[in-house]
Design a protein around this nucleic acid. Structure first.
Length: 938
RNA sequence: GCUCGGAUGGUGGAAUUGGUAGACACGUUGGACUUAAAAUCCAAUGACCAUUGCGGUCGUGCGGGUUCAAGUCCCGCUCCGAGUACCA
């Protein structure tokens, strides 16, 4: 009987679906285990072999945990809002929902073929109204919350209002906008409703603000910082400019410290934690207030080096700093204005690309040094960023290279305040070796001592205090796009945002004629004609009904891509709940994701925002834990192995790789499916694939055309994409699963080369062969031999260790060794073959199910317990000792393991070969490590 | 520039606390089976030298060091990859 993988795989995929084998229950006697793979954006291109890598690893772990007696939750869904479907809609007029549906169906087919143990009954799609209802719901909760710094948690806004009514805002310590002024209870009560609303907006965890945003004209939307790579949009690589717009913002900065602290509690890869740490960018220092001379204004700066305060010789403001226009003297006005205008014109990208050119302008104004009272010239320069700290720095040229360069360029004094340091060539920024000089009360102190002293003195004169600053900014939450979650928001007669009551959610995405911005520059939802909120009847009505009394305009922006993905892992716990976001029982039972697998590219996007929302939901009592994923693993990328043919530049001749020599040739990508395992090209296939080369002359070597190979990113344009369907067709899903694991360590990036798959496919055939006696009829009960048991238990031990360590590649090798050994032993014992099938089943579930059935079982192997390793089968009585001389292995000697050190030395020294090597010399030393090695020195 | 990874045969990669480097596969070569091919099976396969057999020298990016013993530990470099970037 042949190994008919097509038939077997289809059979068991149908069985699992029909019997709902992997459906998870929200309560069980068993311990719970929640393993999750990051859900995909269903793109039009479908899956290539790189995509399922993490899913396969997660699936192996899920199946393993099931065998180990856990109640396993292993769901899958789709992050189905996003730009590509919308771009396609703009080009073709096709509704993104239709494109998305088609793509999802294609994904589902591809996923089903690979034999995943997903609980599809829990599938979520972020673009489904039943799902985004709850994304909108969370937005409302954020709107109705503020951050209490004292309690270090988010609280309902109603509690804040209660405080305002009782004692005003003086006692309130909240994370809020910087421009809140203080008021008493009486003053608060005297305000009208709209004025109160305006104040509350400054406290809410999501709020409207006029923000400098990254505007991408080509995409017609703003982008978050993490959506910009190298100054251009991550998607499409379009130009990004700065623009001021009213946007919904998320007060993630309230959580900066907790997001940082939480990293210590979770088992995530260090590089990922590092990039979150850098992104949050905590720095300790002081805020210092400088008075502007002859002017009623102060300049606040943040510095990490308050110890160098006596080294300040100028100040630099960002060109966008609000004080610039005010303090500039008439003489300098023209110059400053020209400079401000010039920098505004430069795109962020230009400014970044060109960090070497030093530019700036003098405002004509002076600040006053807090201690010496000396005048300090105030400059502006684009090396100071408006978005970091206060947008102003106290420049200490002797201690900071940027300040140093600026000072040199503009001929500003560079006072030296370091003891015994030469600063004629460059600034001195070494904190550890700092000794302060020429600094009044700080003289002779180290960095640490001087910092403390300086802060204390600044506090004493009321011009500064210790401060912790974060690089993390509040996140822009509005997108000027169609295909995203609509906000559950309308704008009342005062133009103030109002939340729609929870009971009327979801607010469904309206239909539009065109997916482009409107002629007046409004977002695509501006094209909707039925997009107004009727407060009296609580429903969406036509725009022409807007009367400013009971019917109002709805929000035109939509939410960003990360909104839906910041809560899906919780929703899987209770995905069909229509009453609440998830039942308390469900979320108390599953608590958090035990194992999360996904790409490292989400380090500062999805994974940071999701942690933020989780902490918020925790504060407000909606979830029981404040970190959503205990352990996280990044799967590496699978790269493609591109193939090249070499066409002569002059003629229509194409040379085989090793005949190119010094000839001038153009490498041309050949489709990898036209190349065999020996790098030989199917020339006829190539000619019909690229008809422009049908008359080309192919110069072969030894009768074949050999292509060049190069590892590149897997992409359509490089013709190196390998489709998992094709692999399933030719070798089967079990081979695909095994091979993806066999390629190398999960976390590492590695090239795909289809040629190697014959190895694992051959292994499955050999495995199948071991069981063939049971397919052909009755097999007499055979007791396992000692070798059989040793092979089996060795395998159990290794495979179990490997799975626990996520070292899936080595367990595939272990299976191969096991099957090779059992084949050599002619093993026919059910006591060996039964547990072996279970061991293999997480990796190659289809064949395992089939073999399990062949052995006479009538239930799914998924229910079988994982075999238990027993040490006793591995106990050896002897060991083949390597005998080395001066660390070099010379021969091996089989000796009993219970032999003492002395006895071993005696036997080895008396051995003929030892005497041969020593040639009469007496060794200086003999190292004997029982059970390991013997080394003779001398 | 900074931070974090990594470098082992022709290829992907093994090697637990320092203890037999190259497991397991791919590829290659030779052989068996076959009219032939495919499939399957067997053998060899780090490099170099020797070969009648035994064997020997070198070898984990480079240069040092610790040790009886180093892919593994320490110091100094080179190259490659990822992230980040005027963060005061």
């Amino acid at each position: 009987m042949n190994y008919d993988f097509q038939k077997i795989e289809k059979k068991w995929q149908e069985y699992w679906a029909k019997n709902e084998t992997f459906k998870a229950q929200n309560n069980s006697e068993k311990p719970k285990y929640y393993t999750l793979s990051m859900f995909p954006y269903p793109s039009g291109a479908g899956l290539h072999v790189g995509h399922p890598l993490g899913y396969i690893a997660g699936d192996i772990y899920a199946r393993y945990k099931r065998h180990k007696g856990f109640n396993v939750l292993h769901p899958m869904g789709y992050d189905s809002f996003g730009l590509p479907a919308e771009q396609y809609a703009i080009q073709t007029g096709q509704h993104p929902a239709i494109t998305t549906e088609t793509n999802i169906n294609r994904y589902r087919e591809q996923l089903d073929r690979i034999g995943f143990s997903f609980d599809w009954s829990r599938e979520v799609r972020t673009s489904n109204p039943e799902y985004y209802k709850w994304t909108q719901w969370i937005f409302i909760q954020l709107f109705n919350s503020w951050y209490d710094v004292g309690a270090d948690k988010a609280k309902p806004i109603s509690e804040l209002v209660a405080v305002f009514e009782k004692e005003g805002n003086e006692t309130v310590n909240a994370v809020c906008d910087e421009d809140v002024s203080s008021f008493t209870a009486a003053e608060w009560k005297a305000l009208d409703k709209a004025a109160q609303e305006r104040i509350l907006l400054k406290y809410r965890l999501t709020y409207l603000a006029d923000a400098e945003v990254n505007w991408c004209p080509a995409l017609g939307t703003v982008l978050a910082n993490d959506e910009i790579v190298n100054g251009v949009s991550e998607r499409g690589g379009h130009e990004v400019v700065r623009k001021k717009m009213t946007q919904w913002m998320m007060r993630i900065t309230a959580y900066a410290q907790r997001l940082l602290d939480g990293l210590d509690k979770i088992d995530w890869p260090q590089p990922l934690k590092d990039s979150q740490t850098n992104w949050i960018g905590r720095s300790e220092g002081a805020s210092v207030t400088f008075k502007v001379k002859d002017y009623e204004a102060n300049i606040e700066v943040f510095t990490t080096r308050p110890d160098t305060i006596f080294g300040v010789s100028f100040m630099t403001l960002a060109p966008e700093h609000p004080l610039v226009a005010e303090i500039t003297t008439p003489d300098q006005k023209a110059e400053i204005e020209a400079y401000v205008e010039a920098t505004a014109k430069r795109s962020e990208r230009d400014r970044m690309a060109d960090v070497k050119t030093i530019s700036g302008a003098f405002t004509g104004a002076y600040a006053e040094h807090p201690f010496t009272k000396e005048p300090i010239p105030i400059w502006i320069g684009d090396y100071v960023l408006a978005s970091y700290g206060t947008g102003a720095v106290m420049a200490v040229p002797c201690g900071d290279q940027r300040d140093y360069d600026f000072a040199k360029h503009f001929n500003i004094a560079i006072p030296n305040i370091f003891d015994g340091v030469d600063i004629s060539e460059e600034a001195f920024a070494d904190k550890a070796n700092t000794v302060i000089a020429n600094s009044d009360f700080l003289n002779g102190l180290s960095y640490k001592e001087a910092t403390q002293k300086a802060i204390a003195e600044l506090e004493a004169i009321g011009q500064g205090k210790g401060k912790i600053n974060y690089r993390l900014r509040d996140a822009v939450f509005s997108r000027q796009r169609y295909w995203g979650e609509p906000f559950p928001v309308y704008y009342d007669a005062n133009g103030l945002p109002q939340m729609i009551a929870e009971e009327y959610l979801p607010i469904a995405l309206p239909e539009v004629e065109k997916y482009l911005p409107t002629e007046t520059g409004e977002p695509p939802l501006g094209n909707a004609t039925t997009w107004a909120w009727d407060t009296a009847n609580a429903r969406v009505v036509a725009n022409d009904a807007i009367d400013g009394k009971t019917i109002f305009a709805l929000e035109l922006n939509t939410m960003p891509g990360w909104a839906g993905s910041s809560q899906y892992f919780n929703r899987y716990m209770d995905p069909r709940n229509t009453e609440t976001i998830y039942g308390k029982e469900a979320v108390d039972y599953w608590k958090e994701v035990d194992l999360y697998i996904g790409g490292s590219e989400h380090a500062t996007g999805h994974l940071l925002y999701a942690r933020f929302w989780q902490k918020f939901l925790f504060d407000r009592g909606f979830v029981p834990v404040d970190e959503f994923a205990k352990k996280l693993i990044n799967q590496g990328m699978i790269t493609g192995t591109s193939a090249f043919v070499y066409k002569d530049e002059e003629s229509n001749t194409i040379y085989s790789k090793n005949l190119v020599g010094d000839k001038k040739v153009n490498p041309i990508h050949a489709d990898v499916s036209l190349v065999n395992a020996s790098d030989e090209l199917d020339v006829e296939g190539f000619k019909s694939w690229r008809p422009e080369f049908k008359d080309a002359e192919f110069i072969l070597e030894e009768g074949a055309y050999i292509v060049g190979r190069e590892v590149e990113k897997m992409s359509k344009s490089k013709y190196n994409v390998v489709n998992p369907d094709a692999i399933c067709e030719e070798y089967g899903a079990d081979s695909l699963r095994l091979y993806e694991m066999f390629l190398g360590p999960l976390e590492q990036s590695k090239p795909w080369n289809t040629a190697g798959i014959t190895g694992v496919h051959g292994f499955l055939k050999k495995l199948w062969k071991l069981y063939t006696p049971f397919m052909e009829g009755e097999v007499a009960e055979v007791a396992p031999s000692k070798e059989n048991l040793k092979t089996l238990h060795k395998t159990i031990k290794k495979v179990e260790e490997d799975i626990e360590n996520f070292s899936f590649n080595t367990s595939v090798s272990t299976f191969m060794i096991c099957v090779n050994e059992l084949t050599a032993q002619k093993c026919q014992s059910k006591e060996i073959l039964s547990p072996l099938a279970v061991l293999v089943s997480p990796y190659a579930p289809h064949i395992a199910e089939e073999l399990w059935q062949v052995l006479g079982n009538t239930t799914s192997i998924a229910e079988a317990a994982f075999p238990v390793f027993e040490e006793k089968y591995l106990v050896e009585s002897s060991k083949e000792y390597p005998i080395s001389f001066n660390g070099k292995l010379r021969f091996k000697l089989e000796l009993p393991l219970d032999m003492s050190k002395e006895e071993i030395e005696k036997v080895v020294m008396e051995h003929d070969r030892t005497q041969d090597y020593l040639q009469g010399r007496t060794p200086k030393k003999v190292i004997v490590v029982p059970g390991k090695i013997v080394n003779i020195v001398g």
